[in-house]
Design a protein around this nucleic acid. Structure first.
Lengths: 197, 197
DNA sequence: CATGGATTCGAACGAGCGTTCGAAAGTTGA
DNA sequence: TCAACTTTCGAACGCTCGTTCGAATCCATG
């Protein structure tokens, strides 16, 4: 790997950490310079500016989640099992990359213009992937309710950054199981009872 | 109601709307002046500054949710029914006060010092209320898992601001039902299956 | 050692921010 | 009509921000 790429990766990693801690808008380029060990002006050799820094963090992280999810589904056929695998992957990935995933979740809608469009394109593919799984698991469900259920699930999973401590009493695997079972069990229950209402 | 209080309420309502739209940090006092029809300096007759504006929005909104939840539970005894009532109240309140609730959810951790402490005191009481309901509904559950389940539920409910359109195909009542059934059904399921793992 | 591109950075710029101040205008009660 | 108080606001201040620029330094190659 070229030294240039290593330096950029280091900058992005530190930026993600500080963005996650302080929030994007409260973080100054001077904060990032201090955290990365570069000078203020030095960072501009690696990026066009603060917004591109956020874009690169989000784009790289989202791409990894999407590809990871596809990998987790690759060798499974059973619909409910695929749904569970998706949830387990998302939650454990989140727990192992808290900073980047927090920046992805909490700083959505900060990017503008083309950068926003590019990240949203990946997000669309990721949401479509989950909605496809829900369709396979519950083909008779109304599409609108399936969509709402998908967002409810993303809510459970992405809210993690507000409270979860990966080093605490609940390890990532157990959290993933808990969330997967709440949703899979509850989604089945919701189908059988809400349907007529 | 004194004209002063009416003007302050108006300012807070407009501020909540703009904070929800643009985010707290991207909103300038000049934006709020334009939205509220006051002059820039005029707003400082009603508030000590931008941070107090955010505090008042959060404190008032949180107090209303907490009291509303207590009211929704007042005439119920059955534990699962109380849990459902809490969820239904939270979701419908959220749907009917999207701006304030988005500011409450998304701009948590923006306040500092005493203002942060005061809002967190209300939040603590609200979280305790839900954890109490979960304890009554599932007394045999490990406290740690109950806590995680509570946050998973808050995630489902609070994530709403990222996607839900109260004027769209799903009315607030139906969304509340969907989320309540996903959680109540899934929580029961999670208890019976996760327990031994 | 000399060369030229890659990399670093001190210093400064211009813009926008939250806030302040003192005066002006409006309102009330006698 | 006057005085006291409440409410409004134009103008400006001081500060911090993201970004830029040109020079300095590093480093692989001949």
């Amino acid at each position: 790997m070229r030294p240039y790429d290593e330096r950029l990766d280091h900058l992005l990693a530190q930026a993600a950490r500080v963005f996650a801690e302080r929030g994007y808008h409260s973080t100054t380029m001077r904060d990032l310079a201090a955290a990365s060990g570069m000078s203020l002006a030095g960072m501009y050799y690696y990026t066009r500016g603060k917004e591109e820094l956020l874009y690169l963090i989000q784009e790289r992280c989202f791409t990894r989640v999407l590809e990871g999810a596809r990998g987790a589904l690759a060798d499974r056929d059973d619909a409910p099992e695929r749904l569970q695998a998706f949830i387990r992957h998302h939650v454990t990935f989140f727990a192992h990359h808290m900073a980047e995933m927090k920046v992805l979740s909490h700083e959505a809608n900060v990017l503008t213009g083309d950068l926003k469009r590019r990240v949203n394109a990946i997000k669309r593919r990721y949401v479509d992937l989950l909605e496809g799984l829900l369709k396979d698991a519950a083909p008779e469900e109304r599409p609108v309710d399936r969509s709402a259920a998908a967002y409810a699930l993303f809510g459970m999973m992405n809210w993690i950054y507000n409270w979860y401590d990966p080093a605490g009493e609940i390890d990532p695997q157990r959290l993933a199981d808990l969330i997967a079972r709440i949703f899979v069990g509850g989604f089945a229950d919701a189908r059988s009872t809400v349907q007529g209402g």
